[in-house]
């Protein structure tokens, strides 16, 4: 369970281009849920996602993960929590060019010091899960959009996180691939993962997979946790 209380995030504080991305948000994400943050671009979805995923430090407010308060943890511990608890799927996929799909999948596990052979086996298994094992040795810049996203998802899963965070996952996909993505989300949910998605794509937020929808506008929650 992730709980944020009275969270605000201010960028470029004190400068002329100062702006408030998230204002006074309080919400709870329970384990096993599939939550979508919806709202127009600039509504603070991505920032809130970053805060929930321990990637962005809020300017004020508190975050707790389970029963542990993590607001003021030093960077090192936060990184460790991020690595072990969260898997990230970025809007631009953010794969490292020039490296193979397999290497990209393994990167988040490098700091754990896991033995190479089992790590490699595991990475191949995850790629296999998404029918990508034949592309394991391919450089990522040669992959199609759908393939690149599946590599990005495989990378998010390598450390076996409990929570998957995806930022606009269908932004660069066509309708067919977007539906395929939702199939993967179903797979993950059935695998017991908690999923948090920021999206303004109806294919995502109108999907019956969503257990919780949070609507954001101008950094504020305007419709919290309406279940369907």
């Amino acid at each position: 369970m992730i709980k944020v209380t009275n969270i605000s995030k201010l960028y470029n504080a004190g400068r002329p281009n100062e702006f408030i991305a998230v204002r006074d948000v309080t919400l709870t994400v329970s384990l096993g849920e599939v939550t979508v943050l919806k709202g127009p671009s600039g509504s603070g979805k991505t920032t809130l996602l970053g805060i929930l995923g321990c990637m962005v430090r809020p300017s004020s407010g508190r975050i707790s993960l389970g029963d542990r308060e993590i607001t003021s943890l030093p960077e090192r511990f936060l990184t460790q929590i991020r690595r072990e608890t969260f898997g990230f799927i970025f809007q631009q996929f953010n794969l490292i060019k020039g490296l193979t799909a397999l290497e990209n999948v393994m990167i988040p596990a490098y700091p754990t010091g896991e033995r190479y052979a089992p790590l490699r086996r595991r990475a191949l298994e995850i790629l296999e899960l998404f029918n990508m094992s034949h592309k394991a040795a391919a450089k990522v810049e040669w992959l199609s959009g759908g393939e690149a996203q599946r590599v990005a998802i495989a990378r998010a899963l390598i450390n076996n996180p409990t929570i998957i965070i995806a930022d606009e996952p269908t932004a660069h996909l066509d309708t067919k691939l977007s539906h395929e993505f939702m199939v993967i989300v179903r797979q993950l949910r059935e695998g017991g993962k908690t999923i948090l998605i920021a999206s303004h794509d109806p294919i995502v937020y109108d999907s019956e997979l969503m257990t919780s929808r949070i609507e954001l506008r101008d950094g504020r929650v305007i419709n919290d946790g309406s279940r369907s």
Binding site: I107, A109, Y110
Partner: peptide, 17 residues
């Protein structure tokens, strides 16, 4: 316990880069 393996992973990454 895994410091050495971790450094080898980082070295792998560096060489690939």
């Amino acid at each position: 316990p895994h410091t050495l393996e971790k450094q080898r992973h980082i070295l792998d990454f560096t060489l690939a880069s």
